[in-house]
Design a protein around this nucleic acid. Structure first.
Lengths: 117, 117
DNA sequence: CAGATACTTAAGCAATCAATTAAGTGATGG
DNA sequence: CCATCACTTAATTGATTGCTTAAGTATCTG
């Protein structure tokens, strides 16, 4: 499980930067070269490549070099992993609210009974 | 929208650390004091407070001080925001796959027609 | 009112980050 | 074959992180 935790660190860290999110966003619309990823970003190419390395380290993106072009693809299952972690927290929180609701309802019933007596 | 981007930076950054995720996890089970958040963490109290500040800066957690105890609560709508960003990427990627599927299906039909002729 | 409790503030420090420029490498196109 | 293109590598730099210890400051509690 410590493995999964480290992965989550890397994925959330990768998503915590607007340039990297822009790259992920672009890649959800299909594969792209490094230059294509760089095009909308106000940044030198080596800067983009460093961000790409962070994305690849997280597993969010993979790439292969064909000729002189490196083609990058998104790895949606890794994106899913992050979403799932958040979702699990939401569910836990919701369950707690439900229990709280039940408790309050019971308390209200008790109060009604108290009112009757 | 640049505002939303900065918020996403902060939220994902906040989630990119196991200590902070542990704190979020604890808070999904109900409010807690700083000491309660610190209890499972192998870290000094000031260290925990620094992590708490990151969580509060992101809006994921709020806290109020009553007497000498600071009580922390999770802000689930902010967690939702992060989940939604990921979800939107997933949907974009899925749409692209669907279009690709349609295209391949059409190509297959054309091939069948070619076979018939 | 004294001592414990629950933080809080401040300072310091090693490590990581995000960016840059400069100088490669190794296809491709004319 | 020579230039251009698409990266790649390396070195540097300033800022930010994630921790620590030490020394506060308000509450409580007896």
């Amino acid at each position: 499980m410590a493995d999964a935790a480290r992965k989550l660190d890397e994925v959330f860290h990768a998503l915590a930067d607007p340039a990297r999110r822009s790259m992920v966003e672009r890649l959800t619309r299909g594969p792209a070269s490094v230059s294509e990823l760089a095009e909308p970003l106000d940044m030198s190419l080596p800067g983009v490549v460093q961000h790409l390395k962070v994305l690849e380290a997280s597993g969010l993106v993979t790439s292969i070099k064909e000729g002189r072009v490196r083609t990058c693809r998104i790895q949606p299952m890794v994106l899913n992993m992050a979403e799932q972690w958040i979702n699990e927290r939401r569910v836990a929180w919701q369950r707690r609210l439900d229990r709280l609701g039940d408790y309050l309802a019971e308390t209200a019933e008790d109060t009604e009974e108290d009112d009757k007596s």
